[in-house]
Structure formats: structure tokens, C-alpha cells
Design a binder for these strands. Sequence first.
RNA 1: GCCGGGGUGCCCGAGCGGACCAAGGGGACGGGCUGGAGACCCGUUGCCCCUCUGGGGCGCGCGGGUUCGAAUCCCGCCCCCGGCGCCA
Length: 459
Amino acid sequence: MTWTILELLRNNPDKLKEHVKKRLMDPSIVDKAYNVDLKWRKMLTKVNEIRHRHNIISRSIGKAKSKEERMKLVNEARNLLKELEKLETDLKRLEAERETILYSLPNIVDDDVPVGDESASLPIEAWGEPKVWSGHLNAFLDQTERYGLSMNYKVIEWKPVGHADMLENVLGLGDTIKAGEVAGSRFYYLFEDLVWLDFALLLYAIDKLTSKGYRLTIPPYMLRYKVMGRVIDIETFKDAIYKIEDEDLYLIATAEHPLAALYYNEELYDDELPLKLLGVSPCFRKEAGAGNRDLKGIFRVHQFHKVEQFIYSTPEDSKKLHYELINNAKELFQELGLPYRIVNIASGDLGACATKKYDLEVWMPAQGMFREMVSASNCTDWQAYRLNIRLIRRKGMAREYVHTLNSTAIASTRTITAILENYQEPDGTVVIPKVLRKYLEVFDKAPHEAIYPKRKKKE
RNA sequence: GCCGGGGUGCCCGAGCGGACCAAGGGGACGGGCUGGAGACCCGUUGCCCCUCUGGGGCGCGCGGGUUCGAAUCCCGCCCCCGGCGCCA
């Protein structure tokens, strides 16, 4: 038992309550968990005592000398079993109750995390030279200088076209109407240059991060219930996860899920950590909690491609590696030339798994907002406890839990929206970021320098 | 999908209804020996609970069942190997 949260629950429940309060959740869950755990431990002791008595008698039956003695002992054992039956039912019930409540406890909150609801999330740094339409200037300053972030921005007088209109009307390279008819809203058809762009973005992230030593991985795109339930919390399950009819299979919402499950019920030695993985997969999301937000375009969709960073680490290294993940993401977006700010996400908006989370938000010139492109979470031992992934120290062979961390590298459709708005020229042409060009040059039919509006095309 | 064989501790592997409650080996870890290393010797090496220099319970793919007693018998599921079929 070295799970941080269980230790805290038993030794200092008030402290754990503070963490739960920071998340704006009802702290009475801690009292419930404490009581159920205590009750379970007492019941376990009681049951074990009776099992012990039963075991002693049961073992002596094999050595009984006479038939009478044998029958007497068998009857005694039977009586104890009858007594056990009810207690074991109670114990099982308590066990299930305990598991449910322990698994519903969120991770503790890191000291650096700003406390409050999403409005308390704190932009902490910014990079790049955003194009700001004059009509958005106040909004822009409100999202940067208000937090003490200064950016060299360029005011433009023409208003860029939103990514949804760009896609569908200006470029004519997407069809969400037909997709809506045949699959539903938040689906899309993408064509030609945008498909090339999608793949080029993935290749770019794969190229960069494999060079940094991340192990390239294609994971399963579906997981069993018992595994998925351990990787994520119930809320995420309800809001994001699709199920396959008549099968015990759930579509992943990100490669994080199968990458976290890679060492399900396994042991990792401290000298083989950190393990850095790079998952490439489609992501399937219900977006059930999204309401009517971002209904147009491909910013928030049921399906997209993503390159995902994932790290298994020792507890002492996880903070450092969390910075590594967000720094990798910054590097990717700097080279893409997309201006961003980094946000330290507030306690109330963390999600149950994370102890701390950084988002990278790119400035969207048409929307006049910074929008999330990357999310980097340190889950410490929250996932590892649920997935039973142990850490073994060579020195002394002590057993603990590993820490897990995850971060987006590139999410295809979102990054495409960012390019459509940031690389847009007044005439609707979209210049292709230089860093992507080498992944497009090799294909004759791929766009090499820019994507042109449909009415400008000569062909 | 069908037929046959199989899943034992970190790994290999014995056990196939009860007799110190998984033999034996390897690896790892701790200690001894050494100037240091190797070899060698001793010990530890599944999970959980407690009144924790000790005591106890549960563990043999997962979940049920039979029995006073199951790694061992029965049922369902999962996975692996071989053969047949099907398929990109």
C-alpha cells in the first residue's frame, strides 16, 4: 500500500478533503471513503478469524483416526461455514462499496495549481507574433496583458475568415453537411490538400519526437471495459467514450488510454524508467458534455487523428518530465509558427486523473480567442494504482507505483483549424508552414507551398 | 468460426482433491567473504489485513460451482499454441 491517496485517506483525511475541495467537489466523499475503508478492514479481520478456525478444523479432518471423530469434525466445520456465509456476503458487499468509492476519488492537487473554477486558470507564458484584427484588440489584450504576458502582435485591418467557412466555402475542401446527413453532426469529409496536411502534421510530430527518443507505437483502438474503467474516470467515460454494440469493447478517445494500459498488471523496474512512448491513433469522442459549442467546422469533432506523448516515470522524476512534455509541445508549435500561450489549468477544471495540467492554446485570428491545442497532464500514481502498474526499486526491491504522464503532440483537425486561421492571406490563400513542406514535397499531388481558394484555382 | 493441446509466483518448471498451507532451478535484492570483482555461502523475493522484531487470511489466466477441504473436479469467459475454414 503506497498509493498516495489511500495513505492520505487513512493517515490524514482532512488534508485529502482539502484537495477535494480545491476541485470544487463535495468533500463528504472523503468521510464516506474513510468509513467504508475502516468498516471493510474490521470486517476483513473478523472474517479472517473465522476462516482461521475453519482452516484448523478442516486440516485436522485428513488426520482423524476414527470415523466418529471425523464426523464430529466435519460437522463442526460445516457449522463454521454457515456462520461464514453471511459474513462473507457482507464482506463482499463492503469490498465492492470500497472499490467504487476509492476509484471515485480524484487525484490530489499539486501545490502550484491555481485554485478555483476554469476562470482561475492562469496563463503563464506566451510565444509568437499573433495577427490581431483591430476589432479583437481589446479581447486580445484581455487574454494576454491582463495576465502580465506581453506579445509582439501585429494589428490587421481585414478580418480573417473563420476556419469553418474556410474549410467549406473558401477552400471547398471539407463537407460537414453531407457528413452530418450520413453520420451526424461533428463528423466531416476532408478532401485533398487538407488530407495531405493532416498526414503531414502527424509525420512532422512523429519525426520530431522519435528523434527525441520516444518509442513509436500504434496501439489498440479499442479496449475492454475493465481496462478503460481503470484508465479514466467515470465522467470521462460518460462524456467521451463510444461502445461497440454487443461486444465488450470501447473506442479509445486518445492513444493515452491504450498506452496507459500497456503495462496493466505489470511491474517496472526503476532502472528502466522513464519509458517514453509516442502513440499514433484515431481518437473517437462523443463530446456529450459539449452542448452546442463549436458545432461548425472541425474544431470539436467525434473523430480525428492524434500523435500522443506518454511517459512512465519514477515519482521523483515526474515533475521534471511534465515540463519535458509541455516543452516538446511548445517546440512543435514554435516551429509551426503558431502563436500560443501556456495555461496552468485551475483545480476545478483538472479532471480526476491529473494532479497538474498545462494547456497550450493557439491564438485564433478569426475567433479572437486562444483555443486549446495541447493538454499535458501529470497523473502521478492515480492511473498506475487503478491499472496496478508497480514500480520496483532495485535497491531493496521496494514496491511502489509508477507515475504516468501524457500530452498531446499534434491533434490533426484542431491544428488544421489553427493553420487555416493563422496562415490565411487576405485573398483566402493558406500558406503551408515551412516545417511541414518536407513531408509534402515527396508527393506529386500534395500542396507544396500553399492551399488556394477554390475560385482562384486554374485547373 | 470449428477441432485438438495449453495457461502455475519476476522467468523456467513440478504438483493433477488433504500430511510445515506451490517442490526445484534461474534472475533480482540484502548480507557474508574480497583491496575490488567473480566464484562461493546465508537470507529475502505474489496480494491484503491486524493489537506488526509477530500473527492471520487470500492467491496457481478471469468469474462462478461441487466439497469439511480445490492449483488439482464441474460450468462460463478470456488469452496462447497447432490444424481446418474464412478474409484485407
